[in-house]
Design a protein around this nucleic acid. Structure first.
Lengths: 230, 230, 230, 230
DNA sequence: AATGAATGAGCCTTCATTCAT
DNA sequence: AATGAATGAAGGCTCATTCAT
């Protein structure tokens, strides 16, 4: 009762989480180099020494921060994707989702791009794997469109993937710096359209030209127009 | 003869150039933060103090390094471009040229993207202007294709530009890190094709009343309805 | 026993005090600019980094040194003053006390006057407040003498105060530089007399001229002569 | 005609004077430590090396600056004084004149007090001599008043001199710092009055045997006994 | 007589990390 | 398991002064 809350005894997990969140906040705010382990420790209400009992180095702490956030971010990714059909729609969802992630946590993106990826050991890190898996979904969509004959094949998939993610990076750059803005929906549409047009094989194959086909499609349109959010 | 090269007196210009090249080498090798002014000075065979007689801050030195290299790189740009005609050809040249620049001096690109652009004052710097002018040429080509009716207009030019440069950045990323490789010619072809197909209007603009005409129009409508912002 | 005193672990308070005393010694000896944080740290048997864990800047260290010494110096000031009555006696005590402070720690005075007061932020510092309170006692004594009619009023109190402290400063200047000497008692007498004569209203009022008055005063004189320190 | 004003060839004296005035301006503006020899040289339109051909050290340059200004300031001093008679008037003129000097060039006073006098070798410098001569005039006036019986003698002259100049220093301190103001005429009046009253002997020097005579003498004794050092 | 490039020692300060307690 | 005092190496930068030209 004398001296309040001295030596709060927390479980390893809780303390770990607190450190992670403190580090996340500071790193996001200041970047890696400008952040100091001292202020991170202070924010987590521990002394510096304790920090280093949980994370061997500052760099490792950064990696863990980004890793955790990244994992959380892409958790329900696949779930959502299962509910969406059609190449255009699926592609568009992925791109939109990526843009939204940046919009919601731009500093995380900055950390990933400018602090984590810079590390010489990046390719051996878990984040690299996560990132690979993350972007690979795009590739899969395109691959299956290629297999079904919907898309042309003479452009390597990696180029298409880079085009999508690279475009997003460039386009959101000033927003991430806190200087601009962007509309995830619009940008997603534009990118998807450009990619789609660039890849889609000429019309003949892709449509059913019979009268019953026309009727079916008009049905679909009617539904879409009646409830645009469905 | 005993103690060699004490107080080598050089003209301002020569010493400046030597410092710039020393700094360029060290920055390219280690990046901004890992480089120290001491080792840069040592490499240029001067004491640290001398370095600061030529460049007020380490940051300024970095900027000057990148600026000089950048300026040299884009010097004969326009000249070459004048000899090339046709939207596809001109676009492809620009992209190829950009890729080649990265291939020839990958570390410069890294410095530019990861150290220079990060500076809060970047937007006020000469490099920013150079970069703007550099990428704007692409926009101009597309603009004139739009005006001539060769290209569609519904995608903002900035998106197209970001798609090109973003794709290049992503695609060359591992090379820049010293871990991969790429073929500027091939990549340029692919990107140009993708963009070109995504934008080029179909040669005959048939507006007929045949069933296939109807189907095409329905295609367009459906897509529009599905993504109202497109 | 091999390598002595590696990582002597002291309590915060002790180390703080040791740093303060080391800094005090060096600053007194060399002044602010000529002192280096390195030698201060060395004198305190710590590395330079440790010094800056205790004091954010060199300037702050100086301020703390002077503040601590100053506070100690004027601690029992009021206590003493309460035991002394009569305008002349009180004034003389204050002046003598000030002179004695300089005699006992001349370098502190130099630091205060030539290093601390020079700081643009001096007026916001605690030392400024202490100093104000310190010199204000003199003003209070004179004020009450003015109220009781003992002193004339046409000279502003600030001038009188400045005359006292300014005279002391000038007179002790060479001593502070280590080049001269002075006798606090004598100087205090002279200054007090000069001020007193310059302010005291003409005699008539101040004495009781009756025989009984004379007897009373002779009594007092006898007592004083019998025990001069009473 | 090609390259304008390269290597202005000036006589030694002119260049010396230009350097002096440049240094004076910079020192006054920034003080000794904050001024750099580079900016002084630049202001005088010479290179740094040239500066050191005229003045062996930065310190010497400061001394010469103050010396020159000081000499100029006290040049017509005696001339003026010859036109004034009467102790009060002469004293008042000296004090007023000193105050005016500070008012006109406060930064010079600051340099003298805080940069020049601090130099360990100050007492061997010409400025010290000038300063001595300068303040000695006050002593002379008082001395002659003492000889003529106009002033009392029991307070050392140095105390009186220090009281005058010290009071002025303290009183003008905030003005010199750019924070306050003062009126030379008024302040001169007050100081002169205080000193004058403190020293002037009462007009009739009555040594009588009446009761009041006894009382007065008892007054003096009592005070002497109370403060034996007086 | 002047230049001006170069020096070099030193400045204050930062901070990830260690380790005695 | 936690503390927190201490480290120590390095960091960018300044500037009076020198001296080859």
């Amino acid at each position: 009762m004398r001296q309040a809350q001295k030596r709060r005894r927390l479980s390893k997990e809780v303390r770990y989480a607190e450190l992670l969140e403190a580090a996340g906040a500071i790193f996001r705010e200041k970047g890696y180099h400008e952040a100091s382990t001292l202020e991170i420790a202070e924010r987590a209400n521990v002394v510096e020494g304790t920090l280093f009992r949980y994370f061997p180095t500052k760099r490792d702490l950064l990696n863990k921060v980004v890793e955790a956030a990244y994992e959380k971010t892409i958790a329900d990714y696949d779930v959502q994707l299962q509910g969406i059909s059609g190449t255009w729609n699926r592609l568009r969802y992925l791109i939109w989702r990526h843009l939204k992630t940046i919009k919601d946590d731009p500093q995380l993106s900055r950390l990933l791009a400018y602090e984590v990826k810079v590390d010489p050991n990046f390719r051996k890190s878990r984040i690299f794997e996560l990132n690979r898996a993350y972007t690979h979904r795009t590739v899969e969509i395109i691959q299956s469109a290629v297999r079904s004959g919907e898309f042309k094949t003479d452009v390597p998939l990696s180029i298409i993937r880079d085009m999508i993610y690279g475009c997003v990076d460039h386009h959101t750059w000033s927003y991430v710096r806190g200087e601009g803005k962007f509309d995830p929906g619009q940008v997603a549409d534009h990118i998807t359209n450009l990619i789609w047009r660039g890849l889609a094989t000429p019309a003949p194959v892709q449509s059913d030209a019979s009268l019953t086909g026309i009727v079916k499609r008009l049905d679909r349109i009617e539904k879409l127009v009646a409830s645009p959010n469905a």
